[in-house]
Design a protein around this nucleic acid. Structure first.
Lengths: 338, 338
DNA sequence: TTGAAAGCGCTAACAC
DNA sequence: GTGTTAGCGCTTTCAA
């Protein structure tokens, strides 16, 4: 391994000068600088960022804490999209990304804060963890800069990015009401996801405002999975067979619900309208194509990276950022004819 | 930040002893160890891996060099799958993963070897880069342990994992021949992908063995993209309108081809049979569902991680590993009736 | 069983 | 402009 010491020896100057030359300081003679640069090229020198990080107390690394990076989760390109967004932004800066997996047995024993401290990441982006996660608060209230995706918590060093889930759900409610639906059910994720709470709130408020009966008794949780969505749909229908529309808090659950209903001989959208949320890739391809709320998932990731790096480089305050969403009508929903 | 020095002060022993206690050495009094452990918990100590890495000359980090981590690439869950596989395996070990993006302007100026040296990764997994990439050879011939995904190169410190593309393509050829097809075209990726070469070779050899005319004049490149596949399909048909079957070297190109042909009024599979490769998620959902060759992509990733970590921890030799594949008949292909 | 001291590769006062 | 020196947090001889 070639170090600055070698360059120093090779050029006959001190390591200090080499360091300064390499880092582009102005107080170094142009000739010496040239000599040093030449030697660096000659010896194929690469700086050791570990050593630099140690003394600078910055690693120029951001951590990505992700849950559910599992074999099964590939159907849901949400995570991948967010990661790509984070990455695309980080690539324009001098930060690299290290991935922390929260569902590994190894790391379960360590808190997220510990993980970050050990690897000395400058900041961390957190995605997909539950609000009842025991380690969530520790990191939000800690002193490591962090940005949460879809979890609206703000702390001295914590900001978040999300879409306006209340507005999105409200749009769905208005749409279904406009289409003449009056008996409406909902398949939600689980009680420990903020997006679930918000989507429920937005949906209920708007339906009630439109004079439509809707409360938590018309909601079944599907745990954000395809299978869970299928089961929830069946429970929903058993409880109230008059239902003509179901709003699902995720596309994956909506797809599960469609399959379950279809195999029961229920036609979609003729008998029951289905609306999802997320606009995952599949939504366009399933038959009938899924009516849903699209989010700029890639934008979510890059906004998170941007906010974090802004906090890191310019002492920006942690904030809240909202990324646009859009209601998309496809073929899984239609006007009620009765 | 609390360091071993603090622990030493707090417990009244030397840093040496603290270090040894923390690392589970046997030559430390049980009482002293207990005191130290207690202090560590009390002060909420976390080891600084940077400092440790610097002195140990191992970072316990593996790099993942990925190309095409782009917004557009989300349709193709191949990359995500491989990453998940790498991750799932690494999670069982004490290695963390740092991601290097090859398509960032920033990093384009540095060679992959430099990237690895700077971040001091112990080894690297390389995925999705072209065989004409100028920096590929440097790293394969260099002294950084690496494992390539789908690029059959072996070096002193380089191994690879892949599927048997020749066999896979050969199965497709036999299938199409069995179904009575005689006029067959192929949409390949590009000339700088090993998988393209292999899939072509396997396909051609087997067709010829079956007495069917096929050579490179019946091949158009689609550059692995949906759009490219669409255009290639049109070119293919223009050149030879008698074609009854097309083998595509990736599902994404196959989907593009299907769309292009359908919009020309050509029915699939009645008029033309289409076969893809990869079995991406979409393949099951497009209509008609795509006949394809499935690869254990997740297995590809975990096999790569396993091989690399084996090289790192047990001085295992770089090797070659093959992951299973499977031909899957769906609805985009059928027996030729003429 | 423990401690003193050296050193990993780098940066940053401070002096010259 | 340049060099001397100390030190980042850790591990590891070597000696006691």
């Amino acid at each position: 391994m070639v170090t600055i010491k070698d360059l120093a020896k090779h050029t006959g100057v001190s390591v200090t000068t080499v360091s300064r030359a390499l880092n582009g300081y102005s107080d170094v003679n142009e000739n010496t600088r040239k000599k040093i640069m030449e030697a660096a090229r000659l010896l194929n020198y690469s700086p050791n960022t570990l050593a630099r990080s140690l003394v600078m107390k910055k690693s120029k690394t951001i951590g990505m804490l992700i849950s559910g990076f599992l074999r099964e989760s590939v159907k849901d390109n949400f995570l991948m999209d967010v990661m790509a967004g984070v990455h695309d932004f980080a690539a324009q800066t001098d930060y690299d990304i290290v991935i922390f997996n929260t569902n590994s047995s190894k790391q379960r024993e360590k808190t997220y804060a510990q993980l970050c401290k050990e690897r000395q990441v400058d900041g961390v982006i957190i995605q997909g963890i539950r609000t009842d996660d025991p380690y969530l608060l520790e990191i939000v209230e800690g002193d490591i800069p962090c940005v949460l995706v879809d979890i609206p918590l703000i702390g001295k060093w914590a900001g978040y990015v999300s879409t306006d889930n209340i507005a999105g759900a409200s749009q769905v409610a208005n749409y279904l009401a406009d289409q003449g639906h009056r008996s409406i059910g909902m398949i939600n994720g689980h009680d420990f996801a903020f997006v679930s709470q918000e989507r429920f709130t937005g949906f209920q408020k708007t339906l009630n405002k439109r004079g439509i009966t809707f409360d938590s008794s018309r909601v079944e949780n599907g745990n954000f999975s395809e299978q869970g969505g299928a089961e929830a749909a069946l429970r929903l229908l058993e409880k109230d067979p008059t239902i003509t529309a179901v709003f699902c808090a995720s596309d994956l659950m909506a797809i599960g619900a469609m399959n379950a209903l279809t195999s029961k001989g229920i036609r979609i959208p003729e008998d029951i309208s289905i609306v999802g949320y997320d606009d995952i890739l599949l939504s366009r391809y399933v038959r009938p194509a899924l009516t849903t709320v699209s989010q700029d998932t890639h934008g979510l990731g890059s906004a998170a990276a941007k906010m974090l790096i802004n906090m890191l480089d310019h002492e920006g305050q942690p904030q809240q950022a909202t990324v646009p969403h859009e209601f998309i009508e496809r073929s899984s929903s239609k006007r009620l004819n009765r």
